[in-house]
């Protein structure tokens, strides 16, 4: 067995609130795989899409504080959140392309005794599983029969505009993971279509119009559940599913799991340790659901 894998871990703000089941399951699964997640010391919010809509340099300086702290460790910085992934990655790209911005941000950081040279390897948790852990090790750890048909939903920012190795339109990392776990990947052509992101609070009607086809497509493909790797995507599809039903007169009740929850289930980790009780649409193993329907 290889030496213990260690990463600097950046949970992101949603891990403390709406994305809590993601956080709980990610930690449980990594512990099970003997992967060390060293939480970034006193990390602050990356700024996400909202800060960048108001301030330019300030938003990047806020993100850069995290990178400056992470730099000394020399480890890859891993985040489970697609928005954190893209926001932190963006600092590096701007540092490379725009020397003026680099100087300005480092000038601001120096006021607090920090400096960021550039070059922390920012990665999404999904690709730690798909690249570093690999399918062989994942399938070797499977202890429970999933017998699930799964729709893999990636959303936007994990594959656009920066991606570790996947296609921005047709990624396959999560598909491979699901297959390695013994799940059945259904044909899901909307896998990278926008879920509406933060629009859901601002213009619900338009936002639900974007989220509904994602649910509909999964159900029509015969999926037992949707699996995602973004806290906001999960929130929109899980917590707003009842609103979709209300507005469109539908009766969808498809569970929306974080991919770490699915891995945990396949590994036979206790459901309570995967935060499954926090999902809004209740998760029922397909076998049990099939039994119930006769």
């Amino acid at each position: 067995m290889a030496t213990k894998q260690s990463y600097i871990y950046y949970p992101g703000c949603s891990a403390e609130a709406t994305g809590k089941p993601y956080e709980i399951s990610a930690r449980a699964v990594c512990e099970h795989l003997d992967i060390e997640l060293k939480e970034l010391a006193d990390w602050n919010c990356c700024g996400a899409t909202a800060y960048l809509s108001v301030e330019d340099i300030a938003s990047m300086a806020v993100a850069a504080r995290n990178l400056a702290i992470a730099e000394s460790t020399g480890l890859d910085l891993i985040t489970p959140c697609s928005a954190c992934y893209i926001t932190l990655s963006k600092v590096d790209h701007y540092f490379e392309d725009y020397p003026d911005i680099r100087t300005k941000i480092n000038n601001a950081l120096s006021a607090a005794g920090l400096e960021y040279k550039g070059g922390v390897n920012v990665r999404h948790l999904l690709y730690v599983f798909s690249e570093d852990i690999g399918m062989e090790r994942l399938s070797g750890m499977v202890r429970a029969d999933l017998s699930l048909r799964v729709a893999p939903y990636y959303g936007c920012q994990v594959v656009r505009p920066f991606t570790e190795r996947d296609s921005p339109d047709v990624p396959f990392a999560m598909d491979e993971i699901i297959s390695a776990l013994g799940g059945d990947v259904v044909d899901y052509p909307l896998k990278t279509k926008c879920c509406s992101g933060a629009l859901i609070g601002i213009d619900e009607k338009t936002a639900l119009g974007l989220a509904k086809p994602l649910i509909e497509c999964a159900v029509r493909s015969g999926a037992d559940c949707i699996v995602t790797c973004c806290p906001l995507c999960q929130l929109n599809l899980d917590a707003y599913q009842y609103k979709i039903n209300k507005v469109y007169g539908t009766n969808y009740h498809i569970p929306v799991l974080f991919f770490t929850q699915l891995i945990g289930l396949a590994f036979g980790i206790d459901e309570g340790r995967l935060g499954l009780n926090m999902n809004i649409v209740p998760y029922r193993p397909a076998a049990r659901a099939k039994g119930a329907s006769g």
């Binding site: 899409t49 936007c156 505009p161 921005p168 926008c194 992101g197």
Partner: peptide, 10 residues
């Protein structure tokens, strides 16, 4: 209405 999905950008 731009939700930062970056589809256009890529």
């Amino acid at each position: 209405y731009c939700s930062s999905c970056y589809t256009c950008a890529v």
